[in-house]
């Protein structure tokens, strides 16, 4: 059942069509960052201000600086995630400093998982995880819309069945 054709995805040859992640994931991560580090900054400021004197409260700037840095980092990390469905394999590319690109042929997929934790669910997000027989295969696409995640899951399962192969 090897088709090898590129017609059904509309891609031309080896030029993959990349899809980025929806902005929901970035919003969620930034919100969590602001909430936690904001709480930390306030707590630290109050504690130091009360116990060690007001000048020490300036240390509360540290979490704020971390927040600013994290804000930028999360943005860059989010922007680096992308995936492409090709005719016969799925490409996932990610990472800013440590870049990693994974190729998983559909025929090697053993299992496709859609997971969504409570926080993710609140933001309307879901992750798709591909499992192959190799545990080292780490093919996860986080922060998708649940509809897109389900579409991807169904499509991957369908393609995986068509091109299925054992170990």
């Amino acid at each position: 059942m090897e088709t090898g054709s590129t017609a059904d995805t509309g891609t031309t040859g080896d030029e993959p069509v990349w899809t980025g992640l929806p902005p929901g994931l970035l919003r969620m991560r930034r919100l969590l960052l602001v909430v936690w580090l904001g709480l930390l900054a306030v707590g630290l400021g109050l504690l130091l201000g009360l116990l060690a004197g007001p000048p020490w409260a300036a240390f509360a700037v540290l979490p704020l600086a971390l927040m600013g840095w994290g804000w930028v980092m999360l943005g860059r990390n989010w922007a680096s995630w992308r995936y492409a469905e090709r005719a016969d394999d799925l490409l996932i590319s990610r990472g800013v400093l440590w870049q990693e690109e994974t190729v998983v042929p559909y025929g090697r997929m053993q299992l496709v998982e859609v997971t969504s934790g409570p926080v993710e669910r609140h933001f309307g997000l879901a992750s798709v995880q591909l499992r192959t027989a190799a545990a080292a295969t780490d093919a996860t696409i986080p922060g998708l819309d649940p509809d897109e995640a389900e579409r991807l899951r169904d499509r991957l399962t369908e393609l995986g069945e068509a091109r299925s192969a054992g170990l």
Binding site: W98, E100, E101, T102, V103, R108, T132, T137, D138, A139
Partner: peptide
């Protein structure tokens, strides 16, 4: 080649 489950490319800074 038939036994390859996935291929990854990794590059550090």
């Amino acid at each position: 080649h038939a036994k390859v489950q996935s291929v990854r490319l990794a590059q550090g800074p």
